[in-house]
Write a protein that binds this DNA or RNA. Structure first.
Length: 366
DNA sequence: AAGACGGGGAC
DNA sequence: GTCCCAGTCTT
């Protein structure tokens, strides 16, 4: 069996890309900053999810200087619902550094770029090839899958195969149009050489693909094993007049820096109400006087499925007064439902907030 | 080398 | 339900 012929693959791929590529917003610009934004948003995130965020982001933060001087809160709010919030924090940090050290312009040296927060191997290569025409191959999930099939590299899509793929790509990449080549590889992976149900009959390089010739394209790369666990969490919506109590999550870890209603996970064997009372006691230092079920919301993360049970929580007048006084505004705030829209919330909390808006939230307590 | 880190969409 | 996605950072 012969190995793929580089010249053949390269030219067929670029021809295919020229005629079949999607018309995407970030393909209409040559602004390195806009390219950067798109590359970061597209990490582990589908094109359709990114498009509206990309447009809104560039409206809100049209250039690096604007991004650098915007408050983190506003930056996170623009990212709300996209996930992996470290990406937004890192872009914000990188923007500040680019203003300070490079006069607000993205550097085009690999070392300088790679040292910026959020610039790993992929993003660095993408920027250098697409925005600066440097012949550096990108390796993302698409490229990895395409190359594993093309070269018949069996096994899972892990870092062990990285070196072999990189070596092959050094030969394969177009020196004339490295940015287009890289995007063509990713586009092929997204539209044709898909993880499931690849459309090999429509593939421009099927004649050079070892996996296709052997009919094993469906099992390369090998599917990975996953276990999804279920969790239940309780949430207390505590009201003071027209305002509700929210608190800020810690600066590191899951959903870092986002705001949410007080609450937490239910322990094994614990009732929902007991969990609610415990969380309120632990987090706010007050006793819940009463709780009325409000709404149940399911939210799926990658490795676990959370059911959020939101309660209308009521405190005694004394506790409410105490809480109102001792509230530390950097961590805990009373906000109206309309002001809540300015705070970055996890998607599960957004669902609860939307419910509160919809029912014109007004507890039935006497 | 392995795990943490979100969310939505395809099937 | 399951699997995956234009990855990066930390341990």
């Amino acid at each position: 069996m012969t190995n793929p012929e580089s010249r053949e693959v390269r030219s067929a791929l670029l021809r295919w890309y020229a005629s079949r590529k999607r018309d995407l917003p970030w393909r209409r610009t040559s602004d390195p900053y806009a390219i950067w934004v798109s590359e970061v948003m597209l990490q582990q995130t589908t094109v359709s999810a990114v498009i509206p965020y990309y447009e809104r982001w560039l409206d809100a933060f049209p250039d690096i200087r604007t991004l650098a001087r915007s408050p983190l809160q506003k930056v996170l709010r623009a990212w709300q619902g996209l996930g992996y919030y470290a990406r937004a924090r890192n872009m914000h940090r990188a923007a500040k550094e680019i203003v300070r050290r490079f006069g607000g312009r993205l550097p085009v040296e690999a070392e300088a770029l790679r040292a910026l927060p959020g610039f790993g191997p992929y993003t660095t290569a993408a920027l250098l090839s697409i925005a600066a025409g440097r012949p550096i191959p990108v390796i993302d999930a698409n490229v990895r899958r395409v190359m594993m099939r093309l070269l018949e590299i069996r096994g899972g899509a892990d870092s062990r195969t990285e070196a072999e793929i990189r070596t092959a790509l050094e030969t394969l990449i177009s020196r004339r149009a490295p940015g287009r080549f890289n995007q063509a590889m990713m586009e092929l992976g997204a539209l044709v050489c898909r993880a499931r149900n690849p459309r090999c009959l429509s593939c421009p390089v099927r004649g050079e693909c070892r996996a296709c010739r052997l009919g094993i394209q469906e099992v390369i790369p090998a599917p990975r094993k996953t276990t999804v666990t279920k969790q239940e969490a309780v949430v207390a919506v505590i009201r003071d007049g027209g305002r509700v109590l929210i608190q800020k999550r810690p600066p590191a870890g899951l959903l870092a820096g986002l705001w949410e209603f007080p609450g937490g996970k239910r322990e094994p064997g614990e009732s929902l109400r007991a969990a609610l009372a415990r969380e309120v006691r632990e987090e706010l230092g007050v006793e819940l006087a009463a709780a009325r079920p409000l709404v149940m919301v399911k939210h799926a993360y990658t490795r676990f499925l959370v059911t959020l049970h939101a309660f209308d929580g009521r405190l005694s007048k004394k506790d409410l007064g105490r809480l109102r006084k001792q509230t530390d505004r950097s961590r805990r705030r009373w906000v109206s439902l309309s002001a809540l829209r300015r705070y970055p919330l996890p998607s599960g909390s957004v669902k609860i907030a939307e419910y509160l808006q919809d029912v014109d939230f007004s507890p039935v307590f006497p």
